[in-house]
Amino acid sequence: MSHLLATIVLATLGAILVVAGLLFFLRPRWLLDWLKGMAILGAILFGLYTLVIAVNIAEYQSVEGMQTVAAISTERQGDQFWRVTMHPANAKPVTNSLRGDQWQVDARIIRFSGPLSWLGVAPGYRLERLSGRFTTLEQERAETRLAIDLNGKSWLDLWELDRKFDLPFIEAVHRNVTFMPMRDGAMFDVRLSASGLVAVPVNEEAREAVQLWGQ
């Protein structure tokens, strides 16, 4: 099930449950006993939770097998100073400057279980940050690192809430690419599966940089 369809289904289900629960509370004669009242309250809470999930997963892209989620190119502007361009798979390109010798991409992944898994909702990902790093410990401590935020903060962040409170039916996972070398003219693909991220060199400059870096 795509995230667009999942968002519509979950939002509709959540709204129905909330409205139904409120109608029960507005008509006390329908409340036969305390157990029914608790069941109605549970329906409202579950409906609200479903709505929160629906709103949040709309901000994520589906993970379906190994897929390329971004392309990254680097251009030297000065000593350890780089112009980095990221082309996300489903968004506008982002260009900014980074300092250092290596780059890294961080991503958030949300996995689903229980009823959401039964509905066939695929795991979702959201690219979070592109950052640089110096290879020497002295520079890493002394110099100011630059980072590019790829997504803004949500007013109610399901990923953050799960990390703090271990929410039901949700598993929030942080993944990042192993730091890769900067090289003038280098191009990399960033590929993602449900298990993690990997950077793949796609031109000669990138392949040479990786080979020299590994020596």
Score class of each variant (00 low, 15 high):
F165K: 04
R163S: 03
E138H: 02
K153W: 08
L150V: 12
A147H: 07
W155R: 10
I148F: 05
S154F: 01
F165A: 11
D157C: 10
L137R: 14
R141H: 06
W155I: 13
R163P: 01
K153D: 09
L156T: 14
R145F: 12
K153A: 14
T144A: 07
D157G: 09
G152W: 04
F165L: 14
G152T: 07
L156C: 05
D166G: 04
I148W: 01
E143F: 08
A142S: 12
N151Y: 06
D162A: 07
W159C: 01
K164V: 13
T144P: 00
K164D: 05
R141C: 00
E160N: 07
D162T: 11
L158D: 00
D166V: 10
R163Q: 15
F165P: 00
E138T: 14
L150H: 06
E140R: 13
S154N: 11
D157M: 08
T144L: 04
E140P: 08
L137A: 08
L167T: 06
D157N: 15
L167F: 02
K164S: 09
D149C: 00
T144C: 00
E160Q: 12
R141I: 14
K164T: 13
L146E: 06
S154M: 06
A147K: 06
E140N: 15
I148C: 01
D166W: 05
E143R: 15
A147E: 11
N151F: 01
W159I: 01
K153R: 15
K164L: 12
S154G: 03
D162E: 08
E140T: 15
E160S: 06
E138S: 03
D149T: 11
L167W: 02
F165M: 10
L156M: 13
I148T: 14
A142H: 10
W159V: 00
R163I: 04
L161V: 02
N151A: 14
P168G: 05
D157L: 04
D162H: 15
D162Y: 03
F165R: 05
E140H: 15
E138F: 05
E140V: 04
D166K: 14
E160T: 12
W155E: 01
W159D: 02
P168V: 13
D166A: 13
D162V: 02
L137H: 08
K164C: 00
G152F: 04
Q139D: 14
Q139I: 05
D157V: 08
E138G: 02
W155D: 00
W159E: 00
E140K: 09
S154C: 00
K153C: 00
S154Q: 11
L158P: 02
E138K: 12
D149S: 10
D157S: 12
E140D: 15
E138I: 07
L156G: 07
K153F: 09
N151V: 09
R145K: 12
E138Q: 12
